[in-house]
């Protein structure tokens, strides 16, 4: 659970760094996509990443089911103010939300980009996809809700992973919790910056010209 979680959190950093190239120019973004499609190490890591997801999901289901049986008779009154964070008590639900939106994300991006590559076909222009999807307000809202669920999941998951593999003590406990918050905030804001940049860029700041140029360049 913790090891696969740490692995997935490293993946998030890689993923969001590549996303951020879209803020600078379409060329940089398309070059990053090209790199991910062709680099050998990346190709090797793709199945490992998929395995990481599967291990994380299966472990979470086993742990959650097991923990459900540990208290057959529930309490009548439960004090909600007990000192544990909301995220820590709802990791499974948050995980399910993240996974649900991940399916949508796969359908909109992965199936049109990476999957086409695996099938040996020309993938869609990734920058065009960004413009097409993030010009719709509801898609932006969905995306941001998704990333906020991810924020809660990783703000607990980060320090919890270190605790579970024993890399923690009374001095490092508060430090790791602060680092977890910082990590989660940075990753979340970086992810959210993409839909915000494109949505407001397209609708309010007259980036159409620039975008049309990018589209022509890409197609």
């Amino acid at each position: 659970m913790s090891l696969s979680g740490l692995f997935l959190m490293i993946f998030l950093v890689v993923h969001v760094s590549l996303n951020l190239t879209a803020l600078f120019s379409s060329k940089a973004y398309l070059a990053a996509c090209e790199f991910m499609d062709t680099n050998l190490l990346v190709q090797v890591m793709v199945p490992v990443l998929a395995l990481g997801f599967i291990v994380h999901i299966i472990c979470s289901i086993i742990v959650t089911l097991r923990n459900q049986t540990a208290r057959p008779v529930k309490y009548l009154v439960v004090n909600k103010a007990a000192a544990s964070s909301w995220a820590s008590k709802n990791m499974f639900v948050l995980g399910v939300i993240v996974l649900g939106f991940l399916g949508l994300h796969f359908f909109h991006f992965w199936a049109k980009m990476q999957l086409q590559h695996i099938l040996g076909q020309e993938g869609a222009n990734a920058y065009n996809l960004l413009i097409e999807l993030f010009s719709k307000w509801y898609y932006c809202v969905l995306y941001i809700v998704w990333v906020i669920a991810l924020y809660f999941h990783i703000s607990h998951g980060f320090w919890s992973a270190f605790q579970s593999i024993g890399i923690n003590n009374s001095k490092w406990l508060p430090r790791l919790q602060i680092i977890a918050k910082i990590y989660a905030i940075v990753v979340t804001l970086a992810f959210i910056s993409i839909p915000i940049y494109f949505f407001f860029g397209i609708h309010f700041f007259g980036l159409q010209k620039l975008i049309i140029y990018h589209v022509q360049l890409g197609s």
């Binding site: 923990n67 000192a83 544990s84 605790q163 579970s164 024993g166 923690n168 406990l173």
Partner: peptide, 27 residues
């Protein structure tokens, strides 16, 4: 059940035992 690091235990422990000990157990 299994520990999911919610920290509820240390909040309610009458002797204020810290979950830092759980990290040592895990180690």
């Amino acid at each position: 059940g299994s520990c999911t690091n919610t920290q509820a235990c240390q909040a309610e422990c009458p002797k204020g035992i810290s979950i830092a000990h759980i990290a040592r157990l895990n180690r």
